[in-house]
Design a protein around this nucleic acid. Structure first.
Lengths: 110, 110
DNA sequence: CATGCTAATTACAAAAAGTAACTTAATATT
DNA sequence: AATATTAAGTTACTTTTTGTAATTAGCATG
């Protein structure tokens, strides 16, 4: 190989950042609040906050503040973020076809 | 969300392990030797070794030893590994459409 | 003015990654 | 026989990233 495509490398770097895939999966369902995502995903507030900030900076996630009581902050996918749906779908397909029940069990042991 | 699909979570855990995406991309080109992959990818021998061992255990990569001089060890994708091609292709598509030149530059600065 | 609520942030310990030098095993050279 | 060469790792050690829990900010309610 001459060398990797820099755009692919960049995309791969983003997607292989821990928790990013699950966050995208969650947001593909629709707009979510911080606490909702925290409840959905096995990720701590500290990292969820970091990842959302990073995804916002990358233009993948949009953040909207509603000054109600208590404050409501909603996260959703931008067009760029929604364009990742086929990636997530293919991962789901692969998981359905190739990840066995035993493998899932094993990874829970550790 | 009730809770995430465990198979998807497992698949996502695998694919979001650092360097795994690039390793798969490299091996989709065909069989490779350790030193070849080390040259292709921006990853050290220590982690390449770890990741290949892990991917072999997951049944995604196959390892073949040829007792020549010097010893030749070849890595290739199993059927399960090759089945990840659509995932990689979709990431490429997204990268082509949505990762800008500027973003690539920025990530090289840091 | 203490309490509760959401959305974070901070502090600190634990795990993973990065780097470079070293090892192993086989064969080849002197 | 001793030494060198080569590929494929492994070890030792430092730096980053994560995980966990406690704390903060802003605001409304009792």
């Amino acid at each position: 190989m001459e060398n990797l495509c820099p755009r692919f490398e960049k995309a791969m770097g983003l997607l292989s950042t821990r928790w990013v895939g699950l966050i995208l999966f969650d947001l593909l369902e629709g707009t979510k609040r911080f606490s909702e995502m925290e409840a959905d995903l096995p990720i701590s507030g500290r990292l969820l906050s970091d990842r959302l900030k990073m995804l916002e900076k990358e233009g993948i996630v949009e953040r909207n503040i509603y000054s109600e009581f208590p404050v409501r902050i909603e996260y959703s996918l931008s067009e760029k973020g929604k364009a990742l749906e086929p990636v997530i779908k293919e991962i789901q397909n692969w998981a359905t076809d190739h990840v066995t029940h035993e493998e899932v069990e094993k990874s829970h042991e550790s």
